[in-house]
Computed example of a mutant assay.
Amino acid sequence: MIVSDTMPRDTGGSATTVPRARTQGASSLVTEQGRTTIADGVVSKIAGLAAREVEGVYDMGGGTARALGAMRGMVGGDKSVAQGVQVEVGERQAAVDLDLVVEYGAAIPDLAGAVRRNVIVAIERMTGLEVTEVNVSVNDVHLPESPRSREDAGPRESRVQ
């Protein structure tokens, strides 16, 4: 559906109005004044940060990606906020795939819904892109550490004297 509005134009001495057509529902990224493109990496970072904001998300990425991220951290590099995020970005829409590690005890369906909502809101608010889907894959569950399994726990007390 085409909607018409008017835009003032200065013609030298008097202002006139010129009809301007716009398509209803069109993206603010493609306008008569030009096109705004958003890199896949930008959308990946937004999605990764938004997913990590949800309580119950322990980490992101598959086992190999997490291992590489840990190694990067050991040599002084920063962990990638886009780890565990794959996106497909078009002119007006984006689709997102997330790989999550959840905390033990979290209700996974509820967590996935909360992550999905947070990612959609963040991407749409920050980029103007319509998010068509957010697929969530849970690859692992983070188990709470017991005091005996911690490296800093020190030696075990003897049960006998």
Rank of each mutant, 00 (worst) to 15 (best):
V138Y: 03
V42Y: 01
N139M: 10
I2C: 00
G84T: 04
L98G: 05
G48F: 07
A122P: 07
T64S: 07
Q93E: 15
A153I: 03
V18H: 14
M126W: 04
E145S: 11
R116A: 10
R125F: 08
V85L: 06
V141L: 10
M71T: 10
K45L: 12
D97P: 00
S149P: 00
V87C: 05
S149I: 05
R22A: 11
E103L: 10
T11F: 14
S80Y: 04
G62N: 14
V119R: 04
V87L: 02
V30I: 14
E151S: 12
A50N: 05
A15M: 15
S4P: 00
P109Y: 05
P8T: 02
R35Y: 09
S14C: 07
M60K: 07
R150K: 14
G34V: 01
V121I: 11
T64P: 01
R159W: 13
D5W: 13
V87I: 07
A26C: 05
N118V: 00
T36Y: 05
R156Q: 13
R92E: 15
E103S: 09
V115D: 08
R9G: 00
G48M: 06
H142Q: 15
T36R: 12
V3K: 15
A114T: 07
V18E: 14
G76A: 04
G34T: 02
G73L: 09
R116F: 02
V85E: 08
V54D: 11
M71P: 00
V102M: 01
R148M: 10
V136L: 06
R148C: 03
R92I: 01
H142C: 02
E130N: 13
V54W: 08
S4V: 15
Y58H: 15
R156I: 03
E53S: 13
R72C: 02
G48P: 10
L129H: 04
A95I: 01
G62M: 06
Y104Q: 09
T11H: 09
G105P: 02
R66V: 02
D5Q: 11
G63W: 09
T17E: 13
V138E: 06
G25K: 01
T64K: 11
A122M: 03
L129S: 07
V89C: 02
G84P: 06
Q86C: 00
R35F: 04
